[in-house]
Design a protein around this nucleic acid. Structure first.
Lengths: 197, 197, 197, 197
DNA sequence: GATGAATGAGCTTTCATTCAT
DNA sequence: AATGAATGAAAGCTCATTCAT
């Protein structure tokens, strides 16, 4: 393995560990020494990979947004109806919330609420464009195929992002009476009803 | 004016100033000296009113939840159709987001994402029950009247809270192409379509 | 009752309450508001009686020293042997340690260890002269009667003060296997053996 | 020199400097910045060695107790009479009080009177067991050899600890008419008289 | 005399970041 | 590349004391 490959691997392991810690403990409650200790590396060396805590946070949101976007892209490329796509998107989102909650928690608990961190370098949601782009493709395809009513994209995007994020938040607060995957049916139906032509 | 009244007034002015600062700068970036300075009072005296920064944050969420709940309550008591109520709720929410954005921003940027602060004392969303209760009443009334489809309450609540919150977030990120009040029509329609029987 | 009498009574109640609190919680851990609250009076008014926390601490040590001295004086005036006097002094000391521990604890936990507080105004143990004087009388009488060996007074005083104080400290640490009053016999015997001619 | 050795040395220099300052100024009047400044190190770095001011205080009492215990141990191991051992213990104690007064002052002014600090982690005098153990060995040996009267150990321990501590306190108050070492003869005689069979 | 809100300096502790090794 | 000791500014919070009422 080449040195640059080793470095890339380590870089990714830092991203994942930091993602984990930021999601569970919050951005400000997670210290750089915390992350270094979890990785069994030194703080000094961690700074060889990311030049500051803020930079690390921004790289994580890009990484996470790409990963989520990739999941939606797979669905967009399927040869199924728009209604089925809605179902699949909700399904993939809630499955992820269940099995790898750190990504979605990062959106909710880190990205959403530390504007001062992401302001410089992530203006206009550029750091989450990986995710937005795929929702946009889904929506445009749906409109073009006649399945979805044409409306301002952000009306639709806010519905997806807000509704799904909200449900994951409620899950995190442990107020949902049922496991989150039991809501897939209801919620994809609600979303489709809201958007259909 | 009695002393206890003056104290109550001062207490409320602290709540409002802290709400303002927490919303705009974030909870961790706002310091107690910041709040004291904005109020032109001493740090020590602030602690005569709220025994810790965390306690202050919890009192603010209760205060805010009550205020939002009161707005919805007014709508719930109106003699109008469920569809009109949805419209009014969205309208009141977005109007507030425009004119007093700090309350809704507080939900998004402080309450949503500092679980470690609200965990102790606000378990199970008890501190926002003022708001939840009214949404619950709206939903139950709608179902009873036959206008809304009966489903798990949290499927409906997540839609309201997430969708509206999400839109306010997008507004805060300055990505919305139109002023937020121009979305009232679309979004209330989407919500009603999602929930109607 | 005259006003000045009422003031004197209140003054004494402050002394006693502060003595209690300083003894149990320590000087620095006891705040002026703590004392005021225990007395159900205002902090401002407390300052009408004692001009500072340090002054209060010094008045307490004088008060306590007088009270302890008075107990020894009674014994000094008894028509009994020096050996019996030793026994009675130990007895009175340990009884007090059991029933009103705050006075002796004050010596140990406040006076002994806050030199910076007592330095100014209590130099040369002047604030505990009420107690020292009586021990000195006991010792001089004992020497004069031929019962005690003549030696430097402080060799004898250190024995009384240190030994008895040490035992009360051990009681406070809960390391004594027996109740403190069960040590009266042994310890008065030890002291008398040490001092007798 | 290895890094771990350097760290151990620095750790010890912190212990000694803090011991010095706590003894002379008192625990509560000595601040962490005071200690750091005396050591010409930063406050933050001090916390790399001791996790809190209280922990530091507890480590000092253990350290001091070991040092004092070691002195007594040497005497216990000597092939001399019990009476001579008493003399030597008093001598060593007063010499230390003269030349390194901070250790004994720490017992008197810090350990004795800040129960709230030592309560958690030093229960039952466990942090001073280094010293107590040696006094216990001295006493048991003395009883076994027939030189000392058998009595409750704490009656004897209180005599040593209280009497010697008391004399050092009087020295600190500058009330002793003679230098403390001039009391060695008298006081060792008093102690031996008190304890002998 | 009595109240208690108000002050603000000062405390302990934290943590992003640097840099000699 | 890797280490982790070191820095120091800044945080949350406390409390003796004052003073307008």
């Amino acid at each position: 393995m080449k040195i640059s490959e080793k470095k890339a691997l380590k870089r990714e392991s830092i991203l994942q560990t930091a993602l984990q810690l930021f999601s569970t403990q919050g951005f400000h409650k997670t210290t750089i020494p915390d992350i270094a200790k979890a990785l069994k590396m030194s703080v000094g060396n961690l700074y060889n990979y990311f030049s500051s805590k803020d930079v690390l946070a921004k790289e994580i949101i890009k990484y996470t947004s790409e990963a989520l976007g990739a999941e939606i892209r797979t669905i967009n490329n399927m040869n199924i109806s728009t209604e089925e796509k809605v179902f699949k998107i909700v399904e993939v989102y809630f499955t992820m919330a269940k099995e790898k909650p750190e990504m979605i928690e990062y959106f909710l608990r880190v990205y959403l609420s530390n504007r001062e961190v992401f302001n410089d370098g992530c203006e206009g949601m550029i750091c989450v464009s990986g995710f937005i782009t795929e929702i946009m493709i889904f929506f445009d395809d749906g409109v073009e195929s006649g399945a979805l009513r044409n409306q301002d994209f952000f009306s639709a995007f806010g519905l997806f992002m807000g509704y799904l994020g909200g449900m994951v938040f409620l899950q995190g607060e442990e107020v949902l009476p049922k496991p989150i995957e039991d809501y897939i049916e209801d919620i994809s139906r609600n979303i489709y009803s809201a958007l259909k032509a």
